[in-house]
Nucleic acid binder design. Structure first.
Length: 275
DNA sequence: CGGGCGGCCTGGAGGC
DNA sequence: TGCCTCCAGGCCGCCC
């Protein structure tokens, strides 16, 4: 489901409702998602502790207290819903955080994830491995991003789309935004990463940054499952040029948008103007 | 090592 | 109304 803009949308929302509050209850409705929940470590970090900040690294959300860091990944279909009740409202509600501010009514964050590709862990209990070997944050240093992508890509035959979707090279870019950034750069997604010039890496990096920032402003892209914690969709979908537009007219040339499989993922592009 | 593929899961859409 | 196949914003382990 979520790429950087969607995770950032959720991070902002969680920060708004959690920072300065404490978690009074942590209810688990199963023992695991992709990995077993480190329940006692999570309770130690979160229960009755002030939430100091909610950060994002790659597609991971970090919830910080003075006892440590809890880590959430939304997988493909993970969402948080903010409710007045702790009782699950839908199937696949896997854990619930009861959040309370002094003198206010308790509110509940329900984590719902039908496919269960998400994660909920703790730094020091395995989650630190999830964050090891991640490439640069695209919204941090632009120079570092360009330099890192160019250096890592030398002599690589991997298609550029797979290359930028690998979080070892740059984080946060998934199937939608890889397609969109390459369209804007007029780069064919199948072109070998090692054959692309430094100048093209600069242009592509600029488009990656721009498309991610624009999508954040629109609250992300909702294709199917993605929702903010109050249920709203993201509105970047109407700005997509290629993703999900197979057979529709290219907005730049007279071509039609193609869809081909690459490494098991649908790959949308315009064969007319992406060379 | 680099890179593709299948698997992890469930559910929605579309064909018959 | 089925029942089947394909597909889905991610990531990991396996295999060549």
């Amino acid at each position: 489901m979520p790429e950087l803009p969607e995770v950032e949308t959720i991070r902002t929302a969680l920060s708004d409702v959690l920072v300065g509050q404490s978690i009074e209850k942590l209810i688990f409705h199963r023992k695991d998602l992709r990995d077993p929940f480190p329940k006692s470590a999570l309770r130690k970090i979160l229960l009755h502790q002030e939430i100091l900040s909610v950060e994002r690294r790659s597609k991971y959300i970090l919830i910080n207290t003075k006892k440590g860091q809890a880590v959430v990944h939304l997988g493909m279909t993970g969402v948080f819903h903010y409710h007045d009740t702790e009782k699950p409202q839908v199937d696949h509600t896997h854990f619930v955080l009861a959040a309370k501010k002094q003198g206010q009514a308790t509110k509940y964050l329900h984590y719902i994830d039908p496919r269960r590709f998400g994660r909920f862990g703790a730094i020091g209990q395995g989650a630190e491995k999830w964050l090891a070997n991640l490439g640069p944050e695209p919204l941090n240093s632009f120079e570092e991003l360009v330099e890192s992508l160019f250096e890592k890509s030398r002599r690589r035959k991997q298609p550029i789309k797979s290359f930028i979707m690998d979080p070892k090279n740059v984080v946060g870019v998934g199937n939608i935004y890889a397609a969109e950034a390459l369209f804007r750069t007029k780069l064919n997604p199948f072109k070998a990463a090692g054959l692309i010039s430094k100048k093209s890496y600069e242009e592509m990096s600029r488009h990656i940054v721009d498309v991610l920032k624009e999508a954040i402003k629109q609250g992300g892209t909702t294709f199917r499952d993605f929702r903010d914690i109050n249920g709203q969709s993201g509105y970047f979908r109407i700005h997509l040029d290629v993703y999900g537009r197979e057979g529709e007219p290219c907005r730049r040339c007279k071509g039609r948008i193609s869809r081909e499989m690459m490494a098991g993922r649908s790959t949308f592009y315009c064969a007319g103007c992406q060379k």
